[in-house]
Amino acid sequence: MKKEITVTINGETRTATVEPRMLLAHFIREQLRLTGTHIGCDTSNCGACTILVNGKSIKSCTMLAIQADGKEIITVEGLATVDGLHPIQEGFHLNHGLHCGYCTPGMMLRAVELLAGNPNPSEEEIRWGISGNLCRCTGYNNIVKAIQYAGAKMRGEELPSTEPQFV
């Protein structure tokens, strides 16, 4: 039996009718047509589908759309503003935090929650913090640097160098 749900997504209120079995990831991509949220493994392992629901990072392949009724959702499309990129996007851009880009939206939204709870994480805390997000391109080093950059920018500190480091 289909049911009506209302969500606030990236600040916009949307009402839609869904089957209870519709997954939130499919709802966002196919019904709301916001395809920045990627589906990778579809088994809650890879983290590509990570979004924020009421400020908490969750894997949208393992939540029902109907469970999001009344909730506030942020996807990658909600990060940038008219003033420019979100600090985490800027960090990924300047630090080469992506190659193919498939994991990037989920990685960034996970990082946003991590930095909200821990504005100045150590490298180890960042690595544990993104342990639910797989990247098969970068080897993670530049993702860690991107998150450190975003943290510094959000704290209003001097920004770390984004020059490539050859080791």
């Binding site: 809650s44 983290g47 990072s57 969750i58 894997k59 393992t62 929650e113 544990w128 342990s131 639910g132």
Partner: peptide, 8 residues
């Protein structure tokens, strides 16, 4: 599991 799963 991982942080996202622990949120749920």
């Amino acid at each position: 599991a991982d942080p996202q799963v622990r949120n749920m």
